[in-house]
Structures are given as structure tokens and as C-alpha cells.
């Protein structure tokens, strides 16, 4: 019996310290994001392979019957916070979360059996274009597998993909224009089933994105506080001025609440609570706004140095603004919350 529980289980989070340490260490050992973001592909393929072989992160959300690790959103929450902190530039979110959730939510057993093991092993890089338009696609230029929709049905394309990376605001997460042969598309899920699948997968992927945003915001706060302690003006650390100190506390509040919102939504998903559809959009809206605001204020706390190309502050700022347009804007999330609550 799959009883719908009414309360999420938040206690599991404490058990994930080990997972967090592993992921943080792995990301710290990777080539610096600045060295890879200039490259055409925008990420390091050798590190991507190591991530799959040594840590198995690409398999995290893939159920065991499709050769994955079968972990839940709560574990993914930890991994995505770390990804966000590190501004990981590879196609992890697109492949291991978005594409995985689209396939799982499609309910297409055969497609899952054929396609998920490759994604889990990291040998297939997948991405999804869910708005049916010709908008740029996340990591489209490195994708082996493309999940697309004509607005009514879903298709998987794994051959004849022609992609062109294009200039994008977020330097650490590339977008590409993509063309493909319609003939090579394989239907996924029921005919006409795309809107439902996309809605369900989007809610799930948004929770991962929210955790990533919370992690990015946490990193911005860390950098800001460290700088405020060390930088002196008027003969004392700028962090001793209320104007700076209070700003840092406001950043802390958003960071802590963003982390809680993403974790809570993840727990709702794992426990299948009735609040999940609301919690997912609440987390998406809150974390998106929080990251954008914290990243912006972080530049201000850093002063002039924060506005230089060499400082990482703008990489977070770019990521934060880009994130907010990735799977619906904040206003769209607000409207979805009103709809879903039945207003």
C-alpha cells in the first residue's frame, strides 16, 4: 500500500554528511571552473568520466532496475547543493536530473530500460528541451541524447544532432541551438502524454535546481563574510559596520531558508506528501530569488574587486540570473502556486 503520508521526513538529512564530504572533495579536485569555461565544450570530459566511475553520481537518481543507485531527492539535494557551491559546469543537472526525471515520469518502461543505463553510467549525456520552441537547449552541444516535444508527445533523439553552442549569460552552464532529423526521433511515453510528463518532471527537476541555487547562494555568503572580516577601510574591518554586517545577516537568512525550502521539497517528493506540488514551486521561487539577490549583494560587499572579471562573484551572479529563466520564471512559479492552491 502506498499510503500518502502527510509529513515529510526531514531527519534523514543528518545521515548525508558522508555523501556531502565525498562530493565536495571530488568537486574540489576538479580542474578549476575558469579553465574549463573558456573551452568550447565548457566542461572537462575526463572529470565527468571519473565522476561516473569513482563516485557514480550520474546514477544517483536512476532506479536500481535501470542500473542506477536508486537514491531519492533527499540525497540529490545534498549533491546539488555541492554542485551549486562549486559552480560545476558539466551537464550534470541536464543529464542526471532533468533527462532522468523526464524518462521516469513518462512511464515508458522500454525507453527507460534502453536509455537510463547509459545516462547512469555517464556514457550518455542527455538533455531535454521542454518548451517545444526553438529556444536554446542546456548543454545541447555535448548531448548524445535529446528529449524533445512537439507540444503533445515526447521524443528521444540520439542521432543526427547538429548543435551550435551560443553566447550565454551563464558562462559556467552552456546553451546551444540544436537541429536534428525528425526521422531519427523515437516516441517516448503515450502519444499526447507530453504535457503531463513535462509538468511532473519539471517539478522534480526544479527541486534539484533549487538545491543548486541554495548551494550557490551559500558560497556567495561565505565569500562575502570572509571578505568582510579581512578587508579594512577607515581603519577597521568592513564587517564591523552595521551596513555590511546587517547585509550579511540578510544574506544568511535567505541562504538558510533557501536550503530549508529545497530540502523540505525534496523530502516531500521522497515521502510522496500531498504538499509536494506546492513545496516544489515554493522552493523554486524562493531559491531562485534568494540566489539572485545574494549573488548581487555579494558583489556589493566585495566592492570594486567584486566587479572585476577575475573575481568569481560574477560567475554566481550570471548563474543565478540564468537559472531563473531555465524552467519557468519566479513569477510563473508564483502563479502556479496560486493555481495549485485553487485560488
Amino acid at each position: 500500500m502506498s499510503a500518502v503520508s502527510t509529513r515529510p521526513n526531514l531527519s534523514a538529512a543528518a545521515e548525508h554528511d558522508e555523501l556531502r564530504r565525498t562530493v565536495r572533495q571530488f568537486l574540489a579536485d576538479m580542474p578549476p571552473v575558469r579553465s574549463v569555461m573558456e573551452a568550447t565544450e565548457g566542461f572537462d570530459r575526463a572529470a565527468w568520466r571519473r565522476m561516473a566511475e569513482q563516485v557514480g553520481l550520474q546514477a544517483l537518481l536512476v532506479p536500481e532496475r535501470y542500473e542506477g543507485l536508486g537514491q531519492g531527492a533527499t540525497e540529490a539535494n545534498v549533491v546539488f547543493e555541492e554542485m551549486g557551491r562549486a559552480l560545476y559546469s558539466g551537464p550534470y543537472f541536464a543529464s542526471a536530473a532533468l533527462a532522468v526525471y523526464v524518462l521516469l515520469c513518462s512511464g515508458d518502461e522500454a525507453a527507460c530500460r534502453d536509455l537510463l543505463p547509459g545516462i547512469a553510467a555517464g556514457t550518455t549525456i542527455a538533455t531535454a528541451a521542454l518548451d517545444g520552441s526553438s529556444a536554446p537547449i542546456l548543454h545541447g552541444h555535448v548531448a548524445d541524447l535529446l528529449l524533445v516535444t512537439d507540444g503533445s508527445s515526447l521524443f528521444a533523439v540520439d542521432a543526427g544532432i547538429q548543435a551550435q553552442p551560443i553566447d550565454s549569460l551563464d558562462l559556467t552552464r552552456k546553451l546551444a541551438t540544436v537541429k536534428f532529423e525528425r526521422g531519427s526521433a523515437r516516441p517516448v511515453g503515450k502519444e499526447g502524454g507530453a504535457p503531463k510528463t513535462i509538468a511532473a518532471a519539471t517539478d522534480r527537476a526544479l527541486v534539484c535546481l533549487a538545491a543548486e541555487e541554495a548551494g550557490g547562494a551559500a558560497r556567495c555568503l561565505e565569500m562575502s563574510v570572509a571578505y568582510a572580516k579581512q578587508r579594512e577601510q577607515f581603519g577597521r574591518p568592513i564587517g564591523s559596520f552595521q551596513a555590511i554586517a546587517h547585509r550579511c545577516v540578510e544574506m544568511l537568512q535567505r541562504v538558510e531558508f533557501a536550503r530549508a525550502a529545497a530540502r523540505y521539497a525534496a523530502s516531500c517528493l521522497d515521502e510522496e506528501t500531498g504538499e509536494f506540488p506546492i513545496a516544489a514551486r515554493v522552493a523554486a521561487a524562493y531559491c531562485g530569488q534568494a540566489y539572485r539577490w545574494v549573488a548581487g549583494e555579494s558583489i556589493q560587499v566585495h566592492g570594486g574587486i567584486g566587479f572585476t572579471w577575475e573575481h568569481d562573484a560574477h560567475l554566481h551572479y550570471r548563474r543565478a540570473w540564468a537559472d531563473e529563466a531555465l524552467l519557468g520564471t519566479t513569477d510563473q512559479h508564483y502563479l502556479a502556486i496560486a493555481d495549485r492552491l485553487g485560488l
Binding site: F257, Y264, V282, Y334
Partner: peptide, 25 residues
């Protein structure tokens, strides 16, 4: 108004989620 309602609900719910996470800890 619908947008503003969504925003207010977001703020209220996140305050609750944060407390539940703290209480659980």
C-alpha cells in the same frame, strides 16, 4: 493579485519549512 498571493504564500511556507527543518535537527 494572483502573483502577489503566490509570493506571499512562498514567504509564509518557507518560514514554516525552515522551522520544521530546525525542529528536526
Amino acid at each position: 493579485v494572483r502573483r502577489d498571493f503566490g509570493e506571499l504564500i512562498t514567504q509564509l511556507r518557507v518560514a514554516r519549512y525552515a522551522q520544521e527543518v530546525m525542529a528536526e535537527r
